[in-house]
């Protein structure tokens, strides 16, 4: 398997605060990897640097061998990177279908009109929003907005999908549906980096995990081993439990 994404020595400083510090890891094509860490450890910031929302203060990011650090999001997205946001970002004045069509219209294939419509409906069905196309994005529930956001990401047919706590807030049944959805994406060959706090989901989905604490990488390896790692346990539960 070849590496699709490589972060080398990535740092991000906000004024005096170092949110991410000298982080290095890589993803192989087709892998589903968990990015874990306690609150405020810098996970979302890493996602933001990969998707081009922030430029890293230091270090390089390579996507399929091409340096992308510091490029704006609209240049990175067409290279095959799509994401969802920790706090859902719907396009409230558009319909559910139009939200997805947006990704098609400006994505890699610049699809527009009837084809875009058909693709959008297909992706809405994929995430469980069949028949909801004409509803306004601001009228549907938070969970449905999350689904819609995933459909919008999938519509670009990304090689690399970044999911920032996409499974958070789902009830147990929805969680099972969500997990099987991500599994089906994995079967399609998509590489997925997911930030998640739901341990069951991590165990079910991720063969490998990268764990961060206070902006630094503290573990990187097979999921069961990483979750048993004393450093990781200490980071999550505090010193007493190590």
């Amino acid at each position: 398997m070849t590496e699709i994404l490589t972060l080398s020595g990535i740092s991000k400083r906000f004024g005096g605060l170092t949110a991410v510090s000298d982080l290095t890891f890589s993803l192989k094509a087709g892998e589903v990897v968990g990015l874990l860490g306690p609150n405020g450890s810098g996970k979302t910031t890493v996602m933001n640097m990969i998707s081009g929302f922030f430029a890293p203060s230091q270090g390089t990011i390579a996507l399929k061998g091409e340096a992308i650090q510091g490029l704006p999001s609209h240049r990175i997205a067409p290279k095959g990177v799509a994401r969802t946001f920790q706090l859902v970002r719907a396009l409230p004045s558009l319909t559910v279908a139009q939200n997805v069509e947006t990704a098609l219209a400006f994505g890699r294939h610049k699809l527009w009109g009837r084809i875009a419509r058909e693709r959008a409906l297909h992706h809405l069905e994929e995430v469980g929003l069949a028949g909801r196309a004409e509803e306004r994005a601001c009228d549907i529930t938070y969970i449905d907005q999350k689904r819609m956001e995933l459909a919008r990401a999938l519509a670009t047919e990304p090689d690399l999908l970044l999911l920032d706590e996409w499974l958070a807030g789902l009830n147990p049944t929805e969680l099972q549906t969500g997990i099987s959805l991500i599994r089906s994406l994995e079967r399609q060959g998509m590489t997925i980096l997911l930030v998640e706090h739901v341990m069951d989901a991590i165990r079910a989905l991720c063969s490998r995990c990268v764990v961060m604490n206070a902006g630094r990488k503290i573990a990187d390896g097979a999921t069961d081993e990483v979750l048993r790692d004393p450093d990781v346990v200490r980071a999550y539960l505090g010193d007493d439990h190590a």
Partner: peptide
Amino acid sequence: SRLGLALKVIGDDEVVASHCGINI
């Protein structure tokens, strides 16, 4: 047109616009 859609998306959320590939 597509430009019109781009404008609506930018009006709604510039971050999403740019992540969808729109050069704002």
